[in-house]
Design a binder for these strands. Structure first.
Lengths: 119, 119
DNA sequence: AAGTTACTCAACCAAATGGTTGACAAAAGC
DNA sequence: GCTTTTGTCAACCATTTGGTTGAGTAACTT
């Protein structure tokens, strides 16, 4: 069910306000009120956003009015997911490039066509 | 408006089916039908998922029935966002650790307290 | 212990999301 | 050229999401 965890993390970061909250928390812890101040939505709305971030494990607090803290470890989870597929995709491109190079070396001339037939 | 782009990318990856599509496309291009086969939802549903991925720039196709291809560059966009705040957060932790170390060095003994006063 | 301040819960609303089915459009195959 | 296959569009439905306001609760202040 770590699947579900990743879903919550990505969903949490899909909202610009929540990404901004994360951005601000990366430079300093802050209370709900402090966090809410810059936005022109209600405090309740920001409180909800923080709950989403908290449920995703991106953020935590020791008590109600304590400053909110960013849980940076979650980033590893995302990075791991991304890296895996990014690398796999790049690997494919490398193989494709190699294949294209090979074809360019072999097909255009009659010489290399005969080489192909011979093999 | 690259803000908006990131939102679409994260939102696209918030769905497990879509993450699975990306995962599969990272090892091989595939047509819509091929991609849809393993899931027990309608082809239309998968087509919609692919549209979401396409709008986020995660995936592309040359024509309707052409194989879908993963656009790996988008990963860079995410990684860049993540790295920035991860590093900022880690930097803060380093400073905090340093501060805690300093306090632990200075406060517990009478000796070091006097050292502080002297400086 | 009482009062204020800071935050959350609940109920509600509009819009977005993920799914369905049925009709249509575009490519391939004959 | 006609037919079949493959994919998309449209309309609809249930659920989720991001916002609101109003009432309640928890935690500092005095």
């Amino acid at each position: 069910m770590s699947e579900d965890r990743l879903s919550r993390v990505f969903a949490a970061l899909a909202d610009p306000t929540r990404r901004d909250l994360v951005a601000r928390l990366s430079s300093a812890d802050a209370t709900v009120g402090e966090l809410a101040a810059p936005y022109d939505v209600s405090l309740q709305a920001v409180s909800k956003h923080l709950k989403v971030l908290e449920d995703a494990g991106l953020v935590s607090r020791e008590s109600r009015r304590a400053p909110v803290r960013l849980e940076a470890e979650v980033f590893d989870l995302m990075t791991k997911w991304i890296d895996r597929y990014q690398q796999q995709a790049e690997e494919r491109y490398r193989r494709l490039d190699a294949l294209l190079d090979e074809m360019q070396d072999s097909t255009p001339t009659r010489e290399s066509s005969r080489e192909q037939d011979a093999s």
